[in-house]
C-alpha cells in the first residue's frame, strides 16, 4: 500500500511551535512521503520555518478566522485535506493542542486513533505503535485496524527533527470552514504565564520541586534554574497546594518530559510523577527522606534538607563555573 503522511503543525503567536518537529521525526521514521500542514492565521508567513525538513510539500491554510485555536474551526480543514490529497496517516505531536484536535479529526474521517505513542515500528508497510499505559507502568503494542490512521506522538520520545536542507514546495490549501458546532463555542482568551524560561517540553535541564518547598518554591528553585538555563517543573502536590502554577506540573496528567538532566527537589516520587519524568537521561533527587521512592529512579540521590542543599548547590556551581 502506498502511504502518505500528513503532519499537522501547531502554531503559537504567529510561529510554528518547535513541538511540531517531533511529529516530523515520526513521519521520517514511517518513511513514506509526507506533507506538513501549517494552519492558523499567519500560516503563510510561518510556513517558511518548516520548508527545510524534507516534506514533499508544506501546505498552508491561512485564514483570519483561525487566529485562535478552536478545534471545531481547525478539524474540518484537516479532514478535507485527508480526502482531497489521499493521506492515510495523520500525525500530530501530543501537546494539549494535538490531544484536543487529533481524536476529533479521527472521528470525522472514520480513522482509528493511536494516542500518545512513544515508538513506531514499520514492517512491510504495516505500522505498529508502542505506547505507555497505566502511568507508564506498562507499554502496549498496538495497531490501528482502519485504512486511515491518526497518531499523536510524545514529544519526550520523538526528538525534534533537525533540518535536512532543501526547500519544500509551499502550496496554499483552502479553508474548509468551521463545523456547525463552531457556532456554539467561542474563544474567550488565552492566559499564559510570563515565562522567560525554556518550555518544559524542550528544556535540556529541568529543576522540579515538590510540596516540601512550600511558599519558598520560587525562592529556592529560581536561582538554580536561572544558573542552569533550566525550565521549572513541579509535582502535582506542589501545584494543588498553590506553591507552583498548574502549567508547571510534570506527570501522568501534566507534562511528560525527557530532558538531559532532571532535578527532583523535595519530590517524594508518586507513580503519577514518575510517569512524567522517568525518561530523563540523568535524574538527580534531593530529599531528606532516605526512603522516598524518588531515590529508586534517581541516578544520583542526595539525602539532605533541600533548604540548605539547594543554595549550597548554587554556590558550588558558581564557584566551579
Amino acid at each position: 500500500m502506498m502511504s502518505h503522511t500528513l503532519v499537522i503543525a501547531e502554531m503559537h503567536e504567529g510561529k510554528v511551535r518547535k513541538s511540531t518537529l517531533s511529529a516530523v521525526t515520526f513521519a521520517r521514521q514511517v518513511g513514506a512521503p509526507f506533507a506538513i500542514l501549517v494552519i492558523g492565521a499567519g500560516a503563510a508567513k510561518a510556513a517558511a520555518e518548516v520548508v527545510a525538513f524534507g516534506a514533499q510539500k508544506v501546505l498552508v491554510c491561512d485564514d483570519a478566522s483561525l487566529g485562535n485555536y478552536v478545534c471545531e474551526r481547525f478539524a474540518p480543514t484537516v479532514a478535507a485535506l485527508v480526502k482531497s490529497l489521499a493521506f492515510d496517516i495523520i500525525a500530530v505531536t501530543a501537546s494539549s493542542y494535538g490531544k484536543d484536535l487529533a481524536p476529533r479529526v479521527a472521528a470525522k474521517i472514520g480513522a482509528g486513533y493511536a494516542p500518545d505513542v512513544s515508538g513506531v515500528v514499520v514492517d512491510g508497510g504495516k505500522l505498529t505503535y508502542k505506547r505507555p499505559m497505566y502511568a507508564g507502568n506498562a507499554f502496549g503494542t498496538c495497531a490501528v485496524t482502519t485504512p486511515l490512521q491518526v497518531v499523536s506522538v510524545r514529544q519526550s520520545d520523538f526528538a525534534a527533527a533537525e533540518a535536512s536542507g532543501g526547500a519544500s514546495e509551499i502550496e496554499a490549501v483552502p479553508y474548509a470552514g468551521p463545523d456547525a458546532a463552531a457556532a456554539h463555542v467561542e474563544f474567550v482568551s488565552l492566559e499564559h504565564g510570563k515565562n522567560e524560561r525554556p518550555d518544559l517540553g524542550e528544556a535540556r535541564v529541568i529543576v522540579s520541586g515538590g510540596r516540601a518547598l512550600k511558599e519558598q518554591f520560587a525562592a529556592v528553585l529560581d536561582p538554580l534554574a536561572n544558573l542552569l538555563g533550566a525550565a521549572v517543573g513541579a509535582s502535582r502536590a506542589a501545584c494543588d497546594a498553590g506553591y507552583a502554577s498548574p502549567e508547571l506540573q510534570v506527570g501522568q496528567t501534566g507534562r511528560v518530559v525527557a530532558p538531559k538532566l532532571y532535578f527532583a527537589i523535595g519530590i517524594s516520587g508518586a507513580i503519577q510523577h514518575l510517569a512524567g519524568m522517568k525518561g530523563s537521561k540523568v535524574i538527580v533527587a534531593i530529599n531528606k527522606d532516605a526512603d522516598a521512592p524518588i531515590f529508586q529512579v534517581a541516578d544520583y540521590g542526595l539525602v539532605a534538607d533541600l533548604f540548605t542543599a539547594v543554595p549550597e548547590l548554587v554556590t558550588e556551581l558558581k564557584a566551579q563555573a
Binding site: A138, T145, Y300, G301
Partner: peptide, 23 residues
C-alpha cells in the same frame, strides 16, 4: 474496535543509581 493491542511489556527498569554524600 479500531485499535487492537497485541502485547504488553513492563517498562525497562532504570539501572540503580547511587547516593552521594555531599553537594
Amino acid at each position: 474496535r479500531k485499535i487492537e493491542y497485541t502485547s504488553f511489556a513492563l517498562p525497562p527498569a532504570r539501572a540503580a543509581g547511587i547516593k552521594v554524600k555531599s553537594v
